[in-house]
Amino acid sequence: MDIESLLERLLAGERAAISEALNLVDDQRSEQREWALELLDRLSAQEAATRAHVVGLTGAPGAGKSSLLNALVESLREASSRVGIIAVDPSSQRSGGALLGDRMRLSASAREAGVFLRSMAARDRLGGLADATRASTVVLCASFDWVFIETVGIGQSECEVAQLVDSLVFVAQPGAGDTLQFMKAGILELPDIFVVNKADTGAVADRTRTELGGALQLAEASATPGWKPPLLSASARDRTGIEEVQTQIEAHAEATRASGDFARRRKEGQLAFATESLLRRYGEWGLAQIGGTHEIGRRLERAEGRSAFGIVLDLGREIEAALGQG
């Protein structure tokens, strides 16, 4: 496989290359996996990797995430921004199959050249994120200004998404009582922006907004210094409040970058990725061979141009060598 040429085509924005790269980073075969890590390592070193902003969109099923995203994309397109989307849907635990329905809701104007959507199945991950989500995000960052990850939130998955994105938007469904669930899960401090969708439902939406507002008063402050998570109302149906959501996302992007929070989040994300990736492939025992999570952290600290992907590749080889000796 010619990683060099794929990289070139990717950076030139060739659409077919984006798709090929996404296929590659999802490939579980050993050889392909190494190529993928190589490609991702090279991509991470590009200026584009930190220029693009990654936004997570999460919320209960039926909260209207797709419709909201669709409206947001249309709004971003008006400003000629290029938007990449990864939509994650759950897999059937029994058959491993999945119905990925989001493409359906993409309106015609969102199906144009400046927009790219890849649907992924969560596979065996309980948290609702696909293994390859992070890698796919890196691929999309090379070609798009904004990368959205849309996923069903059921509490714990918020933690996982939060580790993956630069800004997290929680979409609340009026009247669904998920605020309470959210509070119970103790993760009300994770989202950077709260949106009560379906504002067109009137009183129900207002009540949810009030509830959520009350709960937020009690919650911890946001992880981004100087940032107070705004509570917004929007209606994807009536196209109201969309602009404000966009403005707040942009504002958070600025705040998180200015405060250094952006770099911190990405670093934490890289550590999480490297650890999970090695654990999944080599298990606890394998990880212990190279000194465990501590060693991963140490390598990331003195990375010298090597990204988490490159380090996974290096450590993987070291573990395999250790296994070979053992």
């Binding site: 059937s92 058959s95 199959g97 999945a98 119905l99 990925l100 493409r103 359906m104």
Partner: peptide, 13 residues
């Protein structure tokens, strides 16, 4: 059905 046999299905409508 495709989902039930274990495929990942993009239903494009």
């Amino acid at each position: 059905k495709a989902r039930d046999v274990g495929m990942e299905v993009v239903y494009d409508g």
